[in-house]
């Protein structure tokens, strides 16, 4: 559906996107994750034909975006970070304009009614766009992206600046749209990617540093098992006693949350279920375990870990897990260039 090969964008000497290669298959919901200035929006702009790559090619449904832009663009619906809305139009006028612009061949009235129903803007169709709330503007932006009934939906940070209720509604909408379409969703909000996307690509300083199924990425990073344990025990004895348990890697006092108890972070080797040994050791000494809470590894931890790795050293290539796309794992991006201080330029480019 989307084949990206060696995609590179340079602004002068600055490389904003560096040798990205990936494939997106029909029906996937992909999260494009990266810190601000990582090159997400530039990549999105290239995927939609807004900007041209310096090097590399993009094929949409087999059509090269540069050689056959009209055919390639016809398959795409794009919602940029700031929805491209004309404030002096009503929602209805705007959607009719986009309908004509995208050369749609559906029955106009029925199709627009349907789109408005999907994104739930039917009741604001006659209102001026400038009078709408940010959430509704975003919905109108969604409607615009959906008007040509695209097979591919590209959404650049679709929930930025929305209130929590609107965020939940937009995420639900994305999941709904993702049932019948390929969706590429960029965000620096990790929970959004985790809750919405089945596959995640992490980009930092223009380089693809990870490409994996979301759950595989989380699982692989959970190298060790960690728990927070609240024990009714003398604080000074807890660390030496628990550290002596076989398989225990780390014991760290977290503080006293309840009188007569102490909260401890324990970390054991990945394959060791430390809970049983922990229980036995405490029981032997007459200590009571009041609470035991597993500490999971979130996408946030992985993200920070990967971003730190790539920022401090040159990347060898993307971390590809879960066997989602073997081709991707073979085509690793080139090492980072030294000059990748591209945040400012990236912002300009957006």
């Amino acid at each position: 559906m989307i084949e990206v090969t060696g995609l590179t964008k340079r602004y002068g000497k600055k490389t904003v996107v560096n040798n990205l290669t990936f494939t997106v298959r029909r029906g996937e919901i992909i999260g494009f994750l990266g810190p601000n200035g990582a090159g997400k929006s530039t990549t999105m702009n290239m995927l939609t034909g807004y900007t041209a790559p310096t090097v590399g090619s993009i094929r949409i449904n087999g059509y090269n975006l540069l050689d056959a832009p009209e055919k390639a663009k016809a398959a795409i619906g794009y919602l940029p970070e700031i929805p491209p809305l004309y404030m002096d139009m009503t929602v209805n006028e705007y959607l009719n304009f986009v309908f004509g612009l995208k050369k749609c061949e559906f029955p106009r009235k029925e199709h627009l009614n349907e789109i408005c129903e999907v994104v739930r803007i039917s009741h604001v169709r006659h209102r001026m766009i400038r009078n709408l709330s940010k959430g509704y503007r975003q919905r109108v932006g969604f409607a615009q992206a959906l008007i040509n009934d695209p097979q591919i939906l590209i959404l650049d940070e679709p929930t930025v600046g929305l209130d929590p209720k609107e965020i939940v509604e937009i995420r639900t909408l994305i999941r709904k749209l993702g049932q019948t379409r390929t969706v590429i969703l960029s965000s620096h909000v990790l929970s959004e990617i985790q809750s919405t996307c089945e596959r995640v690509m992490i980009i930092n300083e223009g380089i693809l540093v990870a490409d994996a199924l979301t759950e595989d990425l989380a699982r692989s990073a959970a190298a060790n098992s960690r728990y927070i344990v609240r024990i009714a025990a003398p604080e000074d004895q807890v660390v030496p006693v628990l550290s002596a348990i076989p398989g225990m890697l780390k014991v760290e006092i977290q503080g006293v949350m309840e009188a007569g108890t102490v909260d401890v972070l324990v970390e054991a080797e990945k394959d060791v279920d430390i809970r049983r040994a922990l229980f036995e050791e405490c029981a032997k000494r007459g200590w009571y375990i009041l609470v035991i809470t597993p500490v999971g590894v979130s996408l946030e931890d992985i993200f920070l870990q990967l971003v730190e790795q790539t920022s401090s050293a040159s990347a060898d290539g993307p971390l590809t897990l879960g066997g989602k796309d073997d081709k991707d794992s073979e085509e690793k991006p080139a090492p980072a260039e030294e000059d990748t201080e591209n945040e400012e330029k990236e912002d300009d480019a957006q």
């Binding site: 034909g49 832009p69 009209e70 055919k71 663009k73 794009y78 940029p80 491209p84 404030m87 615009q144």
Partner: peptide
């Protein structure tokens, strides 16, 4: 300035 050019240039219009 209003970023509406992103709409124009990403649709199948020359």
């Amino acid at each position: 300035k209003n970023r509406t050019d992103q709409l124009l240039y990403t649709t199948p219009v020359k």
